[in-house]
Design a protein around this nucleic acid. Sequence first.
DNA 1: CTGAAAGCGCTAACAA
DNA 2: TTGTTAGCGCTTTCAG
Lengths: 351, 351
Amino acid sequence: MLTYILKPVPFNESFSPMPPTIRDVAKKANVGIATVSRVINNNTSVSEETRNAVLVAIEELDYTPNPIARQLSTGRTLTIGVIVPNLTLPSYVERLRGVQAALAESEYHMVLYSVGNPLDRDNYFKDLSRNGLVDGILIISLPPDDAQAERFAQSDVPTVLIDAYHEQLCSVLTDDVRGGEIATQHLIDLGHERISFLSDILETPFHPSSYYRYQGYRKALTENNIPFDEKYRISGERGRMYARKMAKQLLTMPEPPSAIFAGNDIQAIGILDTARELQIRVPEELSVIGFDGIRDAEYTNLTTIDQHLHESGEEGVKMLLQELESLSAAPVLKRLSLELVQRNTTHAFTG
Amino acid sequence: MLTYILKPVPFNESFSPMPPTIRDVAKKANVGIATVSRVINNNTSVSEETRNAVLVAIEELDYTPNPIARQLSTGRTLTIGVIVPNLTLPSYVERLRGVQAALAESEYHMVLYSVGNPLDRDNYFKDLSRNGLVDGILIISLPPDDAQAERFAQSDVPTVLIDAYHEQLCSVLTDDVRGGEIATQHLIDLGHERISFLSDILETPFHPSSYYRYQGYRKALTENNIPFDEKYRISGERGRMYARKMAKQLLTMPEPPSAIFAGNDIQAIGILDTARELQIRVPEELSVIGFDGIRDAEYTNLTTIDQHLHESGEEGVKMLLQELESLSAAPVLKRLSLELVQRNTTHAFTG
DNA sequence: CTGAAAGCGCTAACAA
DNA sequence: TTGTTAGCGCTTTCAG
């Protein structure tokens, strides 16, 4: 019999371990729960008097509406899912900063889905647009394949790609070909002709931007009638350490380049390391230009192509918020501008 | 009458814009929804036969359980909220990387609550532990006041501080005093006596670590019978540019320091900028040591005190996950080790 | 081993 | 202007 009495434990008004619900407020204010809901949601159809009574009850109970219940009821989560490769590269972080800054001014929160391997990526791509966990999706530097893009496009969760492209989806992009061209042209303008291109692997790219930058490099050479020489092109594993090794290979060959265009800033920094090690003075004896415009480029005084990473994040959010309020059909594409930032690692060719 | 017929629109089996629910699966498999739920949750009390039927139905309908509904029902969200200052400082990012890495191996997701100003912070501190949006909270580099800490401690959402301390809460900490001592001792060991301490403002600290490091600096001086000279201490706004200015002030005075201990790596890098500008050779003419062990320190070959930022994030998660499965009462405190990383910016004193 | 039914806390018709 | 009620999609007793 005791159990019977113990189980329900009703009306324990004095001490409530559970947070108050809308029902508690309604009871306290002597109104229906719908009225409380109206007050919470600023619905106009509530008399000033009633509203105040509810407000007082809310205050006294220190009540906060339960977002989960709200989400289930409305179908909106006020959450944006951001799918991003593990924060290994500074460029991802910088883009994320932009996303965060833009999202801070909206009513949306940000859930970070960090991708460590292709499987992670595929899982997030597959589930996130349909499990109701997010209202919108932002994908950074991870190009979806056709089937995945189709899935996103079909789903009713708006999706925007940043630094990735698919014809079916909205995207914020950089013109990597043009960037590669600008970088190379800068070196040519300085009088260089033996110009190397050092990057990560172009053939089976995780992400094709290096390849596009390479195309820009080739284009600039052609336009200036400088023959392309395969021996000045080198590519390998990603990362500063690998860049060092590649740079060493480049700089120790018989007729070394007088300038190197690196696929990204980190690789450019690796080149600077090697130059120091080999006692090659930069920029007097060797010009180096990077690509990205990460903060480290500033710290190391690296000349680079700034692709406005922060802005890419902001623009992505802006685009997504627009989709969110007016589900437009056609994919929008926004190209970001590029900027040559001259610092201390490029110099006129000196014999 | 038409409206009557149009409203319900039942049994539109052929094309369903809405994702399938547990009820659809139950219907298809000819079982009750409870059984489907059991299968989803790997409850053992289901016959192999029934289980298979359900699995097939799930497969055919391409069904995924709705996490929101689940959350409302179970009260668990499988989400960890991470409150972190705007990702402005590299050290925050590095800690976050650690958090992300550790969380990736758990079943939890990560929601980022980025704090731009004290108001943001107070709001997150106030609401997050009781609105049911997260199962646990990780706070990075944001010390709560007594009332806030009390609130966290009372709430049933486990909370762990990283790089912040309060007696009421679990925390992962660095011994900044000891770190300051190690850094200073290193310079003293190299024969330096005119040692500067350059940092952000100590008096009204947003975060007290600089002050603790300063204490370590003083302690080391005292222990080595080197009189402290106020003119060698300078502090000002945070950031590399301000550090440059402060360094200039320090290095252009009559009897400039032969070594500078910077409150953090970014400030140390600012000092290196100024040294270059003033044509003071580092480390031959000036030794510089930083604090933190961010990646930029590696890039710039900076000698520094590595406080294992990445590990702090991992440890924070580990601690939180423990709290999550066994709500222990007593606050746990974990101190991280410190490491002097000697690179190329410190050198024996040369008259 | 299985199904019916009662919530989880809220929103949104609908009726009054 | 208000209250009643029926869900949102799931988990979890409780019977059977």
